[in-house]
Design a protein around this nucleic acid. Structure first.
Length: 488
RNA sequence: CGGGGAGUAGCGCAGUCCGGUAGCGCAUUCGCUUUGGGAGCGAAGGGUCGCAGGUUCAAAUCCUGUCUCCCCGACCA
């Protein structure tokens, strides 16, 4: 028997890794801090990509690709930007190896004149190109997205949530006006919210970051924040209004309708394979992964049961007709007719892999003209009529998608509190964690003090209007409550 | 970089205190029986015990050094 998945309550970190291993999503790689994404994990990522990509194109964006290596000098052109990323860059210094005593060493002769940085993000290399692409207001806007890998040399890593190399998309847009750029920033945040909630079934809070949590080089960083099952927050996506910072750093100007030369306004926005980590920590349970139907690579698995060849033939024929009906409805279905595993094994395997629905067909079902239907999210099993099965499953998948979102939202609401005083804040934080709404005076000093004393950070200043009040720490005026949590 | 833990078969581990032929479970291979919740029986293959020194007749075990990984913190999508 395979190793049981660790109890979530007992050891959340171990449980998280167990879910990933049992679902065959990813492995630790030989290089510390990076990971091998297995076919199961990558199929999930590809589904996420496809949904996001469609949403990007619906909002007028195109895909392009820019280089992996960035000349060191590019990175230093925007002061805030270099400060933010300087400490976590992989640097290429040489171009050759040479064999020495049967091994290899770096050839000192091959030292590069200018070192290359493996991109931690692509603003600089992209804005270097934009300078050449933009002359007139007629060249704007530029609405480009890139699917790529980036490297950030993190001190401490965690599968999917923070790996040294990760996959992501980064949108980089250029606009003629500030208003249009801000509108773009907000539009893409809404795309992320919609993807998180409608596809991942992961409820999020939209907001803007405080100055100290802002992206290096941004004027304003918008974000979506989710709450995980261990009551810690996860930043799930960011959309930055970059102002004219990169245009000025890379001298990107356009001649406007009025004949004036003006700096271009910019945005950038991204989500990464971190979302897979968020998905796992939002829905999974002690039986393993739970996938929302809209993203599950396999939505339905059919497990046939037989004793002899005659039964096998009949059951498989029965199963095939079901499979065909489901396929006709564009449902992704797998018929697990492997001979070398018994049904019990298959049930468990598909459960740990998070397949939303299981259909079991055996001689009994053939005789009674029904099937057994099992939901992954609730683990409920029901005998249902063969008649109308495909439509029933189609509806049930939608229902599961909605139920997952509702359950996750319910969990979040349970763990969201509003407090008045700092004492109350600390109390709630220690007793239940989760999201806490509280008043804050808007200063970095108070923010830092709270972080030092409680390890909680301001996740965001929510976009929805709030009522004014007094800072829970200093008593100074506060425009609205902000969202606090301990975070990943 | 600080604090903790661990490196023994593909995976998970015992053995280390007290030195004496390398073990267990799962997985793998073959055969037969099985199949409605991780199958049973029989047989087989697989490890220079992280690495390097040292002590000893003898080292997975004792000593010294060293490397790696995991967890908690500082940093972060």
């Amino acid at each position: 028997m395979a190793k049981k998945i660790t109890n979530r309550e007992e050891d959340y970190s171990q449980w998280y890794q167990d879910v990933i291993r049992e679902a065959k999503l990813a492995d630790h790689s030989p290089v510390r801090g990076s990971m091998v994404i297995r076919p199961n994990g990558f199929a999930l990522w590809e589904n996420m990509k496809e949904a996001l990509d469609t949403m990007f194109k619906e909002t007028g964006h195109e895909n392009a690709y820019f280089p992996l290596f960035i000349p060191k000098s590019f990175l230093s052109k925007e002061a805030q930007h270099v400060e933010g990323f300087a400490k976590e860059c992989a640097v290429v210094t040489h171009s050759r190896l040479m064999s020495v005593d049967g091994g290899v060493e770096v050839d000192p002769e091959s030292k590069l004149e200018e070192e290359l940085i493996v991109r931690p993000t692509s603003e600089t290399i992209i804005w270097d190109s934009y300078r050449n692409w933009i002359q007139s207001y007629r060249d704007l806007p530029i609405l480009i997205n890139q699917w790529a890998n980036v490297v950030r040399w993190e001190m401490r890593t965690r599968l999917f949530l923070r790996t040294m190399e990760f996959l992501w998309q980064e949108g980089h847009t250029a606009h003629a006006s500030k208003e249009e750029a801000i509108e773009e920033t907000e539009q893409m945040l809404e795309v992320y919210r919609s993807f998180a909630e409608d596809y991942m079934a992961m409820p999020v809070i939209k907001g803007v970051k405080t100055e100290s949590e802002r992206f290096a080089g941004a004027v304003e960083t918008y974000c979506i924040e989710a709450l995980m099952q261990d009551d810690k927050a996860l930043q799930a996506g960011t959309s930055h209004f970059l102002g004219q910072n990169f245009a000025k750093a890379f001298d990107v100007k356009f001649q406007d309708q009025d004949g004036e030369h003006k700096f271009v306004w910019a945005t950038s926005w991204g989500v990464s394979t971190r979302l897979i980590g968020g998905l796992i920590m939002t829905h999974s349970d002690d039986h393993g992964l739970v996938l929302p139907p809209k993203l599950a690579p396999t939505q339905v698995v059919i497990v046939p049961i037989w004793r002899d060849d005659e039964q096998k033939a009949n059951v498989l024929e029965y199963a095939d007709t079901i499979k065909k009906e489901l396929t006709d409805l564009d449902i992704s279905v797998k018929l697990d007719d492997r001979e070398n595993y018994n049904p019990g094994w298959k049930f468990n395997e598909h459960e740990t892999a998070g397949i939303p629905l299981r259909v079991v067909v055996g001689p009994r079902d053939l005789k009674n003209n029904n099937v057994e239907l099992a939901r992954r999210d609730t683990l409920d099993k029901n005998i249902v009529d063969r008649e109308g099965l495909a439509e029933r499953i189609d509806n049930l998948l939608d229902e599961i998608q909605q139920d997952l979102f509702d359950a996750a939202k319910e969990r979040r609401e349970q763990k969201t509190n509003t407090v008045e005083t700092y004492d109350e804040f600390k109390q709630v934080l220690d007793d239940e964690g989760g999201f806490i709404y509280a008043h804050w005076d808007g200063t970095a000093e108070t923010e830092e003090q709270i972080k030092e004393e409680t390890k909680a950070t301001i996740r965001c200043i929510p976009l929805e209007d709030g009522e004014p009040g007094e800072c829970m720490v200093t008593g100074k005026p506060s425009e609205q409550r902000v969202l606090f949590a301990r975070a990943y």
